[in-house]
């Protein structure tokens, strides 16, 4: 069966093109293609994240922003390409990665308290079959405190507002004590108080030398909240410091309709791969 990702047919000679990544780059993505039901959603993405920056992923709906994060973390299968963290494969870097999933991705009517959720960030440290010790509870409470939710620790999660739920997820990521954080739409549908709290946390993380990569929707706040930006529409249109990359022209290219042919090609790839004849 032929691999129908756009890069699978690279000839051996082309592999030599692969740039050397610096080991201090927290994330290096090389030629990553991700397809859902064989339809490419991300196409041949190359990206090197600079360390110690707050990085926004920006792009229109269906541009593959969440998929970029999920592809990096191995949550969706990659059709091709490599992802490395500090020059090492995913398996060796796991404990240094933090993750804030989309709020809608879980059932909030789940019988756990805010503190229980935050403690999940420590589970891997605690290990198989062992209960959560007081030490880890305290660390989780500290994380909740940092997002301003210490007094709601015992509250059942369905009784929290949307913004508070988002802050619980953020606290859970903080409890992981990671070095590189992936956040999937942390600002989606939150109240002003939460937005402020999240921004504060992001700046604290940067001050502590961490790197954050977050899917972001609100173009207006990009320059205020973030240092770097990745403009994404099925492929990386541009990436780099906000001042250089976040230009009218790049945005127009990201959001404009000039890439419709690429989307059409993706459809054709999907059809061909699923064995249906092209119309």
């Amino acid at each position: 069966m032929p691999e129908l990702s756009p890069t699978a047919a690279r000839r051996p000679t082309n592999l030599a093109e692969r740039p050397e990544h610096s080991p201090d780059s927290p994330l290096s993505v090389h030629a990553m293609t991700v397809a859902y039901h064989r339809k490419p959603v991300l196409w041949d993405v190359d990206y090197d994240a600079p360390p110690n920056r707050l990085i926004a992923i920006v792009g229109p709906n269906g541009a593959g922003k969440s998929t970029l994060i999920k592809g990096c973390l191995g949550l969706v299968p990659r059709s091709s390409g490599q992802v490395e963290f500090w020059g090492r494969p995913h398996g060796e870097a796991r404990s240094r990665l933090g993750y804030v999933p989309q709020r809608e991705s879980v059932d909030w009517d789940f019988p756990v308290s805010a503190l229980d959720v935050v403690c999940m960030g420590r589970y891997r440290r605690i290990g198989w079959c062992r209960p959560v010790s007081r030490k880890h509870k305290r660390a989780s409470l500290d994380a909740l405190d940092r997002v301003g939710m210490a007094d709601l620790a015992k509250r059942q999660i369905s009784q929290l507002s949307g913004g508070q739920q988002q802050r619980v997820f953020l606290a859970r990521a903080l409890a992981q004590e990671a070095e590189l954080y992936f956040m999937d739409e942390p600002f989606a549908g939150v109240d002003a108080a939460t937005e402020r709290a999240i921004v504060d946390v992001l700046r604290d993380l940067r001050a502590a030398g961490r790197t954050v990569i977050a899917v972001h929707h609100d173009l207006q706040t990009v320059p205020e909240y973030f240092d770097d930006v990745i403009l994404l529409n099925m492929r990386v249109v541009a990436s780099g410091p906000v001042a250089e990359v976040f230009t009218q022209e790049n945005l127009h290219q990201t959001y404009g309709g000039r890439l419709t042919l690429l989307a059409e090609a993706a459809e054709a790839v999907a059809r061909a791969a699923s064995g249906e004849r092209a119309p």
């Binding site: 404990s95 991705s105 879980v106 756990v112 229980d116 999940m120 079959c129 959560v132």
Partner: peptide, 21 residues
């Protein structure tokens, strides 16, 4: 024994996977 692990996976399997479970 596995209460903690089961709860994590039932609540948020993607997070469990990212953290290495």
């Amino acid at each position: 024994l596995l209460l903690k692990e089961f709860t994590l996976v039932a609540f948020n399997d993607a997070f469990a996977r990212v953290t290495g479970w």
